[in-house]
Design a protein around this nucleic acid. Structure first.
Length: 192
DNA sequence: TAGGCCATCTGGTCCT
DNA sequence: AGGACCAGATGGCCTA
């Protein structure tokens, strides 16, 4: 299984723009410092950087323009960070409506997407079969299972599309398949 | 230690 | 012009 990254809220990699911008402006004045010096958090030592307000040569129009570019970059970084946070929030929301999993088993991004894909597929199949055969006690029970398959591990749910695996066609080929078998088979498709 | 996952930065492209 | 989106690069953290 994949490693689950647990990053503290005060992770040093958050909110680094102050450093970045100063480095950006600094590197424009000191191009040598740019090579191999991607991130201040890295293990490689970094030369002390000039804080943006302390760039004396900023008075020069050229340098002012360059740091204006740096400020735009900083704003773009901020937007990008915000955009990715929104994306992660959406993923969290998606995780929250998926069937319950063991508390410490947070799905990765790709697992969440695959899980959701399969879950939607299973629900769709349930509806389709309901339409086709009508409601019975067994069907309703399976529908309930679909809503809360607490006994299903994330690894079992995290699988490639049932349709891609050829499962759908086989299910259609044998209309006697119960919802239970559909549900179980949907979990047994191979990964990727 | 290698590999997986992740956050962030960055430059390019497209859209409004 | 500025923002949104995207993909590549980079480096940290964690687990096997």
């Amino acid at each position: 299984m994949s490693a689950k990254v647990r990053r503290a809220p005060d992770d040093p990699r958050t909110g680094r723009d102050g450093v970045t911008l100063s480095r950006f402006c600094h590197s424009l004045h000191n191009p040598v410092n740019e090579a191999g010096d991607k991130d201040s958090v890295g293990s490689r030592p970094r030369k002390p950087l000039t804080v943006i307000g302390e760039v004396s040569s900023m008075k020069h129009p050229k340098h002012k323009l360059r740091c204006e570019r740096g400020r735009r970059r900083m704003k773009a970084n901020d937007r990008e960070r915000h955009r990715m946070h929104n994306l992660n929030s959406a993923l969290d929301a998606l995780r929250s409506i998926l069937p319950a999993l063991p508390e410490d088993a947070k799905l990765t991004k790709i697992e969440t997407l695959r899980f959701a894909h399969n879950y939607i597929w299973a629900l769709t199949e349930t509806l389709r079969m309901n339409d086709q055969y009508g409601h019975t006690a067994e069907h309703l029970q399976v529908s309930a299972d679909l809503r809360s398959p607490s006994s299903v591990s994330s690894a079992e749910w995290d699988s490639a599309s049932p349709a891609e695996s050829g499962y759908v066609s086989s299910a259609e080929h044998d209309p006697r398949n119960s919802y239970t078998s559909i549900f179980l088979q949907s979990q047994n498709v191979s990964k990727h």
